[in-house]
Design a protein around this nucleic acid. Structure first.
Lengths: 119, 119
DNA sequence: ATGAACTATAAACTTAGGTTTATAGCAAGA
DNA sequence: TCTTGCTATAAACCTAAGTTTATAGTTCAT
């Protein structure tokens, strides 16, 4: 697969795929170069990038995710577990916050809360 | 209340309070100027800013929120309702995404999924 | 009445997460 | 073969959301 195929299958712009690679977010196993220096991707990159997209979309930064992906070989089980459990906690905090915001907006709709009345 | 009090009560840096004001996120009713041009805030600003923080933290941009806060006087009920319902939908999408990401990380912990085995 | 602490503004700076541009080498169908 | 399209890199550019800096006026405790 060449970069344009990956872009179409994942919805990520080509420029973003190259950018993620520079940020070390694309392990070598997923991409090699052909005789013309074109990137040739394995099929598995698609599922991998879908996970990456999901994790980046809210809770992980590129830097954090890159560290996790690249250092996991050198991390002990306990260390990995700590990082992942911490992230799960962060997700739960965001979920809590979202429930509050949603409630507030629903109250606004019902006239129970309102930016205006707060003024 | 002066700006330092608001900062302490909300946890927002003074620079951020001034920045939000420049972005029209602080309606005039919450802040006036004294003889020295110092900002004098009403008590209600604290609750307002807590709502603002919650909404900004995930789903709203400053620009969007500023529009909503400033234009709501001129919006019909139906228009406001549309904006707010749209935002609620966005929140629900984020919630869905978060549940997926959390599941993925839990699978990683249990060894069911793994960045490494994906390589 | 003076120095430390607080307030103000404008403008420059910062960081993350990309996107765009300039330039150049392959490719593939008419 | 030629032209349209795909690929490459480096470097410049962009936006959001703040933060920092420079400069100046104000206030308060001692």
């Amino acid at each position: 697969m060449k970069i344009n195929d990956v872009s179409k299958l994942t919805g990520l712009p080509i420029s973003t795929l190259r950018f993620y690679e520079r940020k070390n977010l694309i392990p070598d196993v997923f991409v090699q170069r052909d005789a013309n220096n074109y990137r040739i991707y394995s099929e598995e990159i698609v599922e991998y990038l879908n996970d990456v997209k999901a994790l980046l979309s809210v809770e992980f930064s590129i830097e954090e995710l890159s560290l996790l992906v690249n250092q996991q070989l050198h991390l002990s089980y306990e260390e990995k577990k700590k990082v992942v459990e911490q992230k799960i906690k962060e997700i739960e905090d965001i979920q809590k916050q979202l429930r509050k915001s949603k409630k507030f907006l629903e109250d606004v709709l019902e006239g129970k809360a309102n930016f205006q009345t707060k003024c």
